[in-house]
Design a protein around this nucleic acid. Structure first.
Length: 279
DNA sequence: GATAATGTTCGATC
DNA sequence: AGATCGAACATTAT
């Protein structure tokens, strides 16, 4: 479930728990969530110090002092918990990383779609988890969005979910971004004007930064590292508000729910149009 | 019991 | 060849 704001919150919390610590032991409780051989994964981590905490799109990048990196992608239900070494694991715990500060980082994942991967510095860009990741959404540039949308026929909302175009936007924030732009999510990408594409770049950064500020959106499974819920769900303008009145000042439209590329999409039937000066 | 879920990938089709 | 679409993955919560 996590999108960029949720993963960024994980990054910050992980940093608090694990900065400058060394990994003393790794338990792979479910081989499915580890890319490659579990033995190789474990050997790549034990005895290493965690030096830096980065993120690209929805991928966490923990740098190790030997030049390798631990990558993590939570996909739909993955989350990280910071536990004392005596705390019990949940039944969804998949990997436990023991640290020399008497704490554990636990990767917990109900649906088992999430993945953890260890790669060398040199192989970072070819890593399974980073292979299809483009420019990060928080550094989204107008010119880049204009170019990316220009020749595509897919609905603009579907384009926003393409991690190769912009990395970090997910299904909740995509609807929120287009609401702020006043753009109909079904608009074919090639019909989005350069000005509208620039607005998308701007609102993408705005919405995601706000999501980070509120520590993410919890609708059901997402939890921060200490088990708390995010707070952005109370600020959503359209996602999950099917049938509700538009919250834009002066607009009395009704929020619609449709499916695009198989994903729920929410928009206001009055103030989100298929391109300005068009209809 | 049917349905939907904050994500990505792959095979089939256009 | 490249773009697009739907199914698949796995499991829970409602």
């Amino acid at each position: 479930m996590p999108e960029l704001p949720e993963v960024e919150t994980m990054r910050r919390d992980l940093q608090k728990v694990a900065r400058g610590t060394a990994i003393t032991d790794v338990e792979v409780l479910d081989e499915k969530v580890v890319v490659g051989e579990p033995d190789v994964f474990i050997e790549g981590l034990v005895g290493k110090m965690i030096t830096d905490f980065d993120r690209r799109g929805k991928v966490l990048i923990l740098r190790l002092n030997d030049g390798h990196a631990l990558l993590g992608h939570p996909r739909m239900t993955g989350r990280f918990f910071g536990l004392k070494s005596t705390d019990a694991l949940s039944r969804f715990a998949r990997v436990a990383i023991h640290l020399d500060n008497n704490k554990r980082i636990v990767f917990d994942d109900i649906r088992r779609f999430g993945r953890l991967e260890v790669v060398s510095q040199a192989a970072l860009d070819e890593a399974e988890l980073l292979r299809n990741i483009g420019a990060d959404a928080l550094a989204c540039e107008p010119g880049h969005v204009v170019q990316a949308l220009r020749k595509r026929t897919i609905p603009v909302k579907v384009a926003l979910l393409d991690q190769k175009i912009i990395a970090g936007i997910g299904n909740i924030y995509a609807s929120e971004i287009l609401f702020r732009c006043g753009l109909d999510p079904r608009t074919p990408s090639y019909r989005v004007t350069p000005d509208e594409a620039a607005a998308i770049a701007c609102e993408t950064a705005n919405v995601l930064a706000e999501g980070v500020k509120y520590r993410g959106t919890t609708i059901s499974d997402y939890r921060t590292m200490d088990g708390a819920r995010g707070n952005y769900q109370d600020r959503l303008m359209v996602y999950g508000r099917e049938g509700g009145t538009c919250l834009r000042e002066g607009c009395d439209g009704i929020i619609q729910k449709i499916a695009l590329a198989g994903r729920s999409t929410y928009y206001c039937n009055k103030c989100q149009r298929k391109g300005r000066n068009r209809k």
